[in-house]
Design a protein around this nucleic acid. Structure first.
Lengths: 228, 228
DNA sequence: GCGTTAATTCACTAGTGAGTGAAGGAATAA
DNA sequence: TTATTCCTTCACTCACTAGTGAATTAACGC
């Protein structure tokens, strides 16, 4: 008991500062990486922006690649876990008969809420994730590592909702969903200009309102195509 | 007449070599940029890969940014023009009553054919474009410059096909379409692993088979949402 | 207070970045 | 042939890269 208190006190002063500094570095790196990509940011850029000596980043994060991975992993585990839980909850709720739109809502809306309510850090991470998702090789590998389980969980539900549907159609449907989601998270500002200000890149609520419905209809039409 | 012949001969020897070298540089840069991004490639990388002195690239292309823009523009004008023509042809064909799927097919299938039949260069350009599309600021700007006209042409047709539909819904629908298309062109290999080899990233034919149908249904469902 | 441990900075290496300007070399036009 | 123009390379600049290991400073536990 006394040890526990002591440990808590110990982690309170120094280790808390440590954690705070690391978080600051991660936040800044997240912001910069999301805007300029891995090679477009130098450790000095990050250090300057945080206000620490650049070698401190090597001290805390080993090397640049590790820093990038830590930035990505920090929030990837959160969103992955959150969505997995949402899918599990939904599956339990509807028993053995999920709908396509229901499953997609559990997957998409849960995530979009996070970017809406999670503050700037989450939105920067979203833009970073979008870049990673469209980077061949190591980008795809990072996506695999963090998101395969939750994606396969979603696909399991979609298969249940569409038992007659060819597996390929479900995978390609998921591919379309994730592409649309990634471009949303990229928050490039393109839709703003294109629509003359009618739509805004950072209006995740507008996307949430439409996306699951839109995609569910897509799944249905492709899967019923062969019969029709 | 004699002058014309002379000019043609003139452009045959030296200027032809010049064009060949420039094309080689563009091809190689296209390949490398598509894999590692703008900052992930150095002019020396490109030069080494082509087999020329690295300063030659400065001679031909001014600077690195210009080289990138030239790489992007070279094919962007082709696909933009091609799709514009396809949309015009389609509009003429159906008179004043386009369908959503018809318009999307003119837009999407025309493009997907290009990546299927256009060889490796086109596929590299596709992956590059996908990166550009999810890059904020200058990436979005490049997309704007090259593709706004053809995209607005498509949106015009979609509006005609869905006269009751809210404009925002159409813009967001287009946003989903382009997100899905960009992830396809990124050719990351992720769908391959995810599906256990059932789907392949480079199978543009499979995407073509499904995409317009999928997206058309999405548009319909979102646009009829308010009434339903 | 005092030895220990962790955090931070310093001085430095070894290599790379884009880009320039002058010079050499080759094809071309008169 | 000769002057010109274009292509290509060379030598170089200047700034910056990631990362290391030693030195310094600050916090901690006793």
């Amino acid at each position: 008991m006394a040890t526990a208190v002591k440990n808590r006190i110990k982690t309170s002063a120094k280790a808390e500062q440590r954690a705070a500094t690391m978080d600051q570095i991660l936040d800044t790196a997240e912001y910069l990486f999301s805007r300029h990509g891995f090679y477009g940011v130098t450790l000095k850029d990050v250090a300057r922006s945080v206000g620490v000596h650049h070698t401190l980043i090597n001290y805390y994060f080993e090397d640049k690649k590790k820093l990038f991975e830590d930035v990505f992993a920090r929030r990837a585990v959160v969103t992955s876990h959150r969505r997995m839980k949402a899918l599990d909850d939904y599956a339990r709720e509807v028993g053995d008969s999920p709908t396509v739109e229901g499953a997609l809502r559990a997957f998409l809306d849960t995530d979009l809420d996070l970017y809406t309510e999670g503050g700037e850090g989450w939105r920067n991470y979203g833009a970073l994730g979008a870049q990673v998702a469209s980077t061949p090789e190591w980008g795809a590998r990072m996506m695999d590592e963090h998101f395969d389980p939750v994606v396969l969980r979603l696909i399991g539900l979609l298969k249940k909702a569409l038992p007659e549907c060819a597996e390929e159609d479900i995978f390609w449907g998921y591919h379309f969903v994730t592409g649309a989601l990634m471009l949303t998270l990229a928050k490039t500002g393109r839709i703003d200009k294109l629509s003359g200000g009618l739509c805004r890149s950072d209006d995740y609520a507008a996307v949430k309102e439409r996306m699951a419905t839109f995609m569910a209809a897509g799944f249905m039409s492709v899967c019923s195509r062969r019969k029709g």
